[in-house]
């Protein structure tokens, strides 16, 4: 159902307008949320802003016709990883109110580096893709297609990933246990 947006965008002019509007709204939310996340003086607020950013990114996935990725994003990021991060905040006893020294004194160096990277990346993106458009006839890709692909072409990376997850699981337990 949510894929209708992408389909619509591909088929009609009006649809494209709607989709574009949706995208820019999402992008604005994501960027603003991201900026707030890295500047806010409250750790819990930062976590909530991250929530907003991740939801907005999920929205852009929908526009791109990647429904399954969007749903996974919501489930894994918003459901699991956020909870984990909030637990992290809680276990390290962050103050719930504002905090003065969350940022490093020399954050302007970081800002400089980030701005430099953004400049370089924007330039090269623009040089490389200019005004190329996404294909007009794209349709939302079915979850079945994704799974077919994972379990045939990408079976080895998939298995490797499962081993990685296991290793991370064991590693996290070993690192964090009291001894």
């Amino acid at each position: 159902m949510i894929g209708l947006l992408a389909q619509e965008a591909a088929l009609t002019d009006t649809g494209e307008w709607i989709a574009n509007g949706f995208f820019y709204a999402m992008a604005a939310v994501a960027i603003l949320g991201g900026l707030k996340m890295v500047t806010t003086a409250n750790v819990v607020h930062a976590a909530l802003y991250l929530l907003v950013v991740l939801s907005a990114v999920a929205g852009t996935y929908v526009i791109l016709g990647a429904e399954f990725v969007a749903v996974t994003q919501v489930l894994i990021y918003l459901g699991a990883i956020m909870v984990l991060l909030l637990f992290g905040v809680m276990l390290t006893r962050a103050k719930l109110g504002g905090e003065e020294d969350l940022d490093h004194e020399q954050r302007w160096i970081g800002a400089l580096v980030a701005a430099g990277m953004l400049a370089v990346m924007s330039y090269s993106i623009w040089e490389a893709f200019d005004t190329q458009k996404l294909p007009g006839d794209r349709t939302p890709q079915l979850t079945q297609q994704v799974s077919d692909e994972i379990f045939s072409t990408y079976i080895v990376p998939f298995e490797a990933l499962s081993v990685l997850l296991l290793a991370a699981l064991i590693g996290a337990v070993v690192v964090a246990r009291r001894d």
């Binding site: 960027i31 890295v38 390290t92 969350l102 940022d103 954050r107 990277m117």
Partner: peptide
Amino acid sequence: AALFCIGIYGVLARRNGV
């Protein structure tokens, strides 16, 4: 790209591990 650079800024500027 914008989100990436915001993330980099966050990594570089923040003191809190989380």
